[in-house]
């Protein structure tokens, strides 16, 4: 049985339990439901709010290098620390956080396999409402990897051929039957998908317990069944870039595809463009 291309970026819940409180290991919870952290989290974990802390508060963008340094250093995390990210919805925003840590060059960042729901459903795993007391440390970004991010010009470039475009939204969003899942405030003017994109919903990658499927299964699904060519540059997108971070993680770190970009503008950028080509159905 094949292993993941980069198994070092995943830790299991048992590993986290065994390493709770050890120096140099920092836990960060990032949830879709921003109330979840306050209700209870892994002892010692800090919580990041994706709405207010991981996005630029004014313009539509990821947080700046300066804001990242403030946020991460303020959480007591040093560049040499091992950062373990986890969250609800099978690590959607934890994967988004992982992508951000990688963009700003953090060396050792990992996801807790199965995320919050797996921890919650294991009886031996403690939860607390106590917010850890952290001592801020200086954090200096030394390298930036913007090649992990797709911007609009590359999305148009990709449509000319030679790229994989992977749409990870639900089938109804892909076909244009709905523009966004019900009740979402971030939406678009038009429904459909980027021409040439393959539909591979993000949840294809996970087991019922929240963990990632095996390397063999992932290879079969993405490379064989869906025809993702691992030798080509690849863009993953969704609606606002969090579900696609999850698939970006799968393609780049579990399957080992070299050049994978997350398009965080996603459908809320593309589906609002005047005159851009769209496919439906």
């Amino acid at each position: 049985m094949a292993t993941y291309a980069h198994p070092e970026v995943l830790v299991e819940t048992d590993w986290v339990l065994a390493n709770l409180g050890k120096p140099g290991i920092k836990l960060v919870e990032i949830d879709v439901d921003t109330k979840a952290y306050d209700a209870g989290h892994i002892p010692g974990a800090v919580g990041f709010n994706w709405q207010t802390q991981l996005q630029d508060p004014v313009r539509r963008d990821i947080i700046s290098q300066d804001a990242f340094e403030q946020l991460v250093g303020g959480a007591g995390i040093s560049p040499s620390d091992t950062v373990i990210l986890y969250g609800d919805n099978n690590n959607w925003f934890a994967a988004y956080g992982f992508w951000l840590f990688k963009i700003y060059g953090h060396k050792d960042v990992r996801l807790m396999n199965g995320g919050r729901v797996k921890w919650l459903n294991e009886k031996d795993k403690p939860l607390t409402t106590e917010v850890p007391k952290v001592t801020p440390v200086p954090y200096k970004v030394t390298e930036v990897h913007l090649e992990l991010r797709a911007m609009l010009p590359q999305v148009f470039e990709a449509q000319k051929g030679g790229w994989n475009l992977v749409d990870v939204r639900s089938p109804d969003e892909f076909t244009g039957k709905v523009i966004a899942p019900p009740g979402m405030t971030e939406t678009a003017q038009r429904g459909g998908h980027i021409p040439g994109a393959k539909s591979v919903p993000w949840s294809t990658a996970v087991n019922p317990d929240g963990t990632f499927k095996s390397a063999d299964e992932l290879r079969r699904i993405y490379l064989q069944e869906k025809g993702v060519d691992p030798t080509r540059p690849t863009i993953a997108y969704c609606r606002i870039g969090e579900r696609s971070s999850h698939t970006w993680f799968v393609l780049k770190y579990l399957l080992g595809i070299e050049n994978v970009k997350n398009y965080d503008g996603s459908w809320t950028e593309y589906g609002n463009l005047v005159g851009a080509p769209i496919e439906k159905g």
């Binding site: 879709v32 439901d33 979840a36 609800d88 919050r116 899942p181 009740g183 993000w202 087991n207 019922p208």
Partner: peptide, 18 residues
């Protein structure tokens, strides 16, 4: 918003967390 099999209901998970 985009459920996966086995993910569980958000209200059940939050109540369990409390």
């Amino acid at each position: 918003l985009c459920p996966a099999p086995g993910l569980g209901d958000g209200s059940i998970n939050l109540a369990k967390t409390h």
